[in-house]
Amino acid sequence: MTNLAIAANGLRKSYGDKVVLDGIDLTVPVGTIFSLLGPNGAGKTTAVQILSTLIPADGGEVQVAGFDLARKPDDVRGAIGVTGQYSAVDKLLTGEENLLLMADLKHLSRGDGKRRAAELLDRFDLVDAARKPAATYSGGMQRRLDLAMTLVGDPRLIFLDEPTTGLDPRSRRSMWQIVRELVASGVTIFLTTQYLEEADELADRIALLDHGRLIAEGTAEELKRRIPGGHIELTFADAHLLDAAHHLLGAGITDPEALTLQVPSDGGVPAIRELLNLLDERSIDIAEMNVHTPDLDDVFLTLTGQQKVEATR
């Protein structure tokens, strides 16, 4: 069995009558990126707050970084780092002072603290802004400083709660690059996001959270495979060609008005080549072709849609 950075069993939390987490199970192996994906209000932030010792759970057995969350919260705190969706930097202090503050709180020696701060300022491209108050930083810079502060103590497990929400595409890409480098160095990442693209790009495993329940879990590929809907859409110049193609392939759905034929397919190159060769042999010309592969959007919409239908029954 591999070592687990997080092992949660039946994690529950409610505020009054409102059930926020309805008994969720999580297993996150060391050195991987795990993404908790869900719409706003699904309970992602609550899950991070519980796992990072900010608020207590109502029930469930949880081990974080090898320590029991309820009994040894201080040992958990020693092993984790948290970067939330609202920047956790002291805006009145400069970037450098914020990093040195973290170094002091992690009980590094003065020399080590200074070295670590300098190293992180350099790595996160904050050297020029090091002596300016964090209040003057752009959103992307504050988020980078935030993550740099989390890294001061070399945490083994890092919680990133919607790390790129509100960032421009460029800052988002640079954040992704940083996350990949961290995992390459052996750190475990627990990432929450509402962006399917982000989970797809980064995560080894993805769990879909909706209304406090995990509705699906697996790799991005596994999740996509659960959803039908991959197809190739062929458009023809006239109805004659459309019928010929439909007859030849013996499958698919035709739309005589739009002159299109939807052929079920995984959208892979061999499948496309085979299809085109077949049509070519019979000299059936294609006016236009579109390949639609299922993405996490399809997965997400399908699964959360089903959930909602069940709930209203």
Binding site: L54, D75, V82, L105
Partner: peptide, 12 residues
């Protein structure tokens, strides 16, 4: 401020 939440997740 978020910094206080950060302090709460640290062993201090």
């Amino acid at each position: 401020e978020g910094i206080i939440a950060r302090f709460r997740t640290m062993r201090i």
